[in-house]
Design a protein around this nucleic acid. Sequence first.
DNA 1: TAAGATTGAGTACTCAATCTTC
DNA 2: GAAGATTGAGTACTCAATCTTA
Lengths: 147, 147
Amino acid sequence: MCDGVGAKDEPRIDAWVRLHRAQRKALAAVEAASKRAGFPPLVWYDVLLELDRPGNERGLRPYDLERRMLLAQYNLSRLIDRMEREGLVERGACPQDGRGQMIVITDAGRELRRRMWLVYGPAIEQALAALTEAEARQVTKLLDKLA
Amino acid sequence: MCDGVGAKDEPRIDAWVRLHRAQRKALAAVEAASKRAGFPPLVWYDVLLELDRPGNERGLRPYDLERRMLLAQYNLSRLIDRMEREGLVERGACPQDGRGQMIVITDAGRELRRRMWLVYGPAIEQALAALTEAEARQVTKLLDKLA
DNA sequence: TAAGATTGAGTACTCAATCTTC
DNA sequence: GAAGATTGAGTACTCAATCTTA
């Protein structure tokens, strides 16, 4: 992921390459651990997490999820279909806006999220174990600028 | 992408969340620029880049590409199909190992890579413009530990 | 007319099984 | 039997078009 010409000093291009390699490698490791444990894709966890946050007891609209999770709307629509079919979330009417819906997490959804975290959390720690805590904090601070 | 419980101090979990958000946002921006210009997916660029590196004139084996690009083999197999159909790469026999192949970039592949870089490079610079050059170097150094 | 959300058609990805050569 | 590579079947993703309400 660079122009391939060679030794030019292009710090942002180098950072881009590392950003992708690190993300893909860490994600692959965590996905593998989650899969070994028989869990659904990690994006399901992310949806459940957003819905399970304090303050979201009445649910979130797909539009909100879309923005928080950087997912395309058409994508989210079918993802919610699948999760609803598994009984992890429910669709409800939106009182303020007839076009919208409220997506609410179910008890089964909360329970799955809890169980996934038992595998997911340690897997993340392990995937980033090469960073000291101070280095991890530095990464957080630097990458926050890109959010 | 955290356990959702709240304000615990878990530097690696925080770094994981930022790593993903930053990567997805940057990638989305660059993909969008590439798509606007009418180019194929960015993974095509990455393949062409690996094949176009000095020293790879005789081609690379799918096995090599797989490891350098962190792609699954079955995935790569069909990706090469598509790129071969477009005349960007060619498959050849592998002299040392009858099971393997040599994937070689064509002139059309080299030309596409060159044209893609004209859009891709500036898009990356822009996506990471929030980082100073010194910060970009720091990111590179820190994330190298995860490779 | 624009925004939230869904759908159909086409493409690409994933897993497991298979084929060939080492 | 193990490794490089491919394939079939099922699933998920992408784009554009559509539907409904604001």
